[in-house]
């Protein structure tokens, strides 16, 4: 699936989910401001996985600043990802939990 096809598909899927016509979806807006909750993020990434036939982390929706950036990364496996590594996510969580312990 090339970038244009994936972009069209993504517009349609996101449009269905948030009840907005596909042509009105702004793909350059930060994904987080679309307001998908955790369950919707999980469902949408499952749909992307089914479409692409390979695993996609639900955190991708937060890892990339915009849908355009996410689509670009999904189309090009070799592209250096904006994704945090699992070790970085672990470190971030450890910091958050450590702050609690010191609170």
């Amino acid at each position: 699936m090339n970038r244009d096809e994936l972009t069209t598909w993504f517009r349609r899927k996101l449009g269905e989910r948030i009840a907005v016509p596909p042509e009105r979806i702004d793909l350059d807006r930060p994904l987080e401001t679309i307001g998908l909750d955790s369950m919707e993020a999980v469902e949408l990434t499952a749909e992307i996985e089914a479409e692409l036939g390979r695993p996609v982390d639900p955190t991708s929706l937060w890892d990339y600043p915009t849908a355009t950036a996410l689509i670009a990364a999904l189309c090009d496996d070799a592209a250096p990802g904006a994704e945090l590594s699992d070790a970085e996510v672990d470190a971030e969580l450890a910091r958050m939990l450590a702050r609690e312990d010191d609170a």
Partner: peptide, 23 residues
């Protein structure tokens, strides 16, 4: 108000077991 899952449950969003049970 809902806390951002990307910020507060990022580790679990990457955990296929947790994602599957949640789904």
């Amino acid at each position: 108000r809902r806390p951002s899952p990307g910020r507060f449950a990022r580790d679990l969003l990457r955990d296929p077991l947790v994602v599957w049970v949640s789904r």
